[in-house]
Simulated scan of single mutants.
Amino acid sequence: MSVASPPISATRRPLITLDTDHKRIIWLLRTLGPTPRITIAQQLGMHNGALTRLTRELLMLDVVEERGQVLAGQRGRPSVPLALSGKAGYAAGATVHPGWLEIALVDFAGHIVTRDVMAFDSPDPNDFVHAVDQRLRVLATQSGLMRSRFLGLGVAVPGPAVQTGPSRRHTVDWLHGWREIDNDHFYEDYFGFPVWVENDATLAALAEYYDSGLIGECASALLLYLGHGVGGGVIHRRDVMRGEFGNAGDIGRLFRMAAPRPSGIDLLATLREAGADIHSLFDLEHHLDRHAEVVQAWAARAGEQLGFAANTGVAWLDPGAVILSGSLPRPVLEAVGQHLQPARWSSALDILRHPVVHVSRLGGSAVAVGAALLPIHQLGADGIG
């Protein structure tokens, strides 16, 4: 067990202070992008005087910025678009994979500042927080970020919430040391700044929703996540859906561990049975061409299995999008995605609208990016309209 070093910030600092109307403006700009003041006023039903005051306050906080110039023939400032500014602050996200630790920094506008990986294989959560603390110091300095602008840390945990104690999660076997942590206090007690803890697939859903642009196109989405295991996440009314017990989207329970299932571990086992000398998902890309038929057959089977889960979710929740994400190579995700197309989903009525199917651009980094987005997302979540 490592001896805890002094945290990156020894005192708790309040986040940016925003009222409900500030947050409504922020969420409108998150969904619409750069928008003229007159459109903001119309969309939110605000008087021009109130909007002028609110936007002046947001400009002073560096939460928003003006974009472009006044249009020709126009007088005054109403036609100058406002957009979210990354200068308001930044947040970090951290997660562990078998053999390495990943950290992402994201600014207030939702743009990725940097992503970082380092070797890490300890099951001790004390080693994890020590390593994250040290890397955050380095990354903040390298990226030229001010610690006074730090908005918080998101931590992604691979495992569902359980009833064995307050804020406990049943993490995967190789993180058995994390199972007795009180997640509501362990991280904040060490770091001294706000920390949010969430399931890894749920955070991947948040990252994909932002990165894909779906945040401006639909208010709900289902995520299917293929990593070493299989999981999922749900976006509902542009917010993360956690469920009654914190396990919304836990589709892994639909696929028995002893049977073939749509997971990275299952794909590795399938390739080994076919004669591949492969030891981890790191090596997967080197075997795609050599065992193309095996991978395609597995992708077809995995796609059919996930199609069942997706079709069930679509029937219950009627989402605007289904997102396929995970740490598997993009060609594998795309092959699986071919079997998730709406045409394959059963429906008694052919005239029903189907969600768009989106394959991730972030890949395995979606978890760390989503963890970094969570503090920023939560900062204005109660302003979602």
Rank of each mutant, 00 (worst) to 15 (best):
R256W: 13
F282K: 14
V294F: 00
L271P: 04
V294S: 00
V294I: 03
A269M: 09
S280A: 06
I278Q: 02
H291M: 02
V295A: 03
R272L: 04
L284K: 04
R290H: 10
E293T: 12
R256F: 15
G249Q: 08
A297Q: 06
A259C: 11
D250Q: 15
H291S: 02
A258M: 11
A269T: 08
D250I: 12
R261G: 07
D289W: 08
A269E: 12
L268V: 06
D277K: 05
P260T: 01
H279G: 04
T270G: 02
I265S: 15
H286S: 15
T270W: 03
H279N: 05
A276F: 03
A274W: 00
T270M: 04
A297T: 08
A292K: 10
E293Q: 11
P262G: 08
I265A: 14
M257P: 15
H291D: 07
A259I: 08
L281A: 13
L254G: 15
L254I: 14
L268Y: 06
H287E: 06
V294D: 00
S263C: 07
L284W: 04
D283E: 14
G249E: 06
P262D: 08
L288Y: 01
L267H: 00
R256V: 15
R272F: 07
T270N: 02
D250F: 13
L254T: 14
F255R: 08
E273T: 09
A276H: 07
P262M: 05
E285F: 06
V294P: 00
D277M: 07
S280L: 04
R272K: 10
H279L: 06
R253H: 13
A258T: 13
S263T: 04
S263A: 11
L268S: 05
D250K: 15
F282M: 12
L271Q: 05
A292S: 11
G252I: 05
G249S: 12
L268P: 08
Q296V: 08
R290W: 03
E293K: 06
G264S: 10
R256Y: 15
G249F: 05
D289R: 11
A297M: 05
V295S: 02
M257D: 15
G275T: 05
L271G: 05
D289H: 11
R253Y: 13
A276W: 02
I251T: 12
A258D: 13
E285V: 08
A297S: 10
R272P: 07
R290E: 10
A258P: 12
V295W: 01
A297V: 06
S263H: 03
H279Y: 11
L254E: 12
D250A: 15
G249Y: 05
V295G: 01
L271K: 06
A276E: 03
R253M: 12
D283R: 10
Q296N: 09
E285G: 10
L268G: 06
R253C: 12
V294G: 02
P262Q: 07
R256D: 14
F255T: 03
L288T: 00
T270V: 12
F255A: 05
G249R: 07
D283H: 13
L288H: 01
I278V: 08
F282P: 07
A269L: 11
G275M: 02
R253A: 13
D283F: 11
R261M: 04
V294M: 00
R272H: 09
